[in-house]
Amino acid sequence: MKIEGRVWKFGDDVDTDLIIPARYLNISDGRELARHVFADVRPDFAGAVTAGDIIVAGRNFGCGSSREHAPLALKAAGIRAVIARSFARIFYRNAFNIGLPLMESGEAEELLQEGEKISVDLSTGKIENMTSHKTCSAQRIPDFMRNLVQTGGLVEHVRQNKLKKKTVRR
């Protein structure tokens, strides 16, 4: 499963309040949320991001409040994957649960620059910089979680796999 896209770079400790400021939490529609993503730190982001782009960041991405609006806003804005040195734990779960893949890589931050085109292989963890043609690797995403992303998230996964035997409304 390969993803190609343009890089947006961020630093360490990008918290969920930076991703989607608290004043927008009364919105639950993804597309509406996407218009305000990174509104305080990078007001140009929401307008310039295009479908398929990839975020590359440092340590502890998604820390702070456990709001699910954050991964939802990123996904709705068109972000296809986030590569970071490390992620906050609950953000990590939330992202996979809504079908946004995350990859942990210590090298990516140095190798990849803003605006470069890269290709990411979700099944092997290989990251290729299509501008400089250098490669690096991220930790492999476990199969189960890759499936989660492919199915489209936890809701779909549960609907397809878990509730077959039990009573399902639809």
């Binding site: 699910e68 779960r93 936890l154 809701v155 878990k162 509730l163």
Partner: peptide, 20 residues
């Protein structure tokens, strides 16, 4: 352990959760 709302919604439905 603490999780997000999607996880919890699924737990309420299935009584199970995936964990590493």
């Amino acid at each position: 352990t603490g999780v997000g709302s999607t996880d919890l919604g699924a737990v309420m439905a299935t009584g199970e959760i995936w964990l590493k």
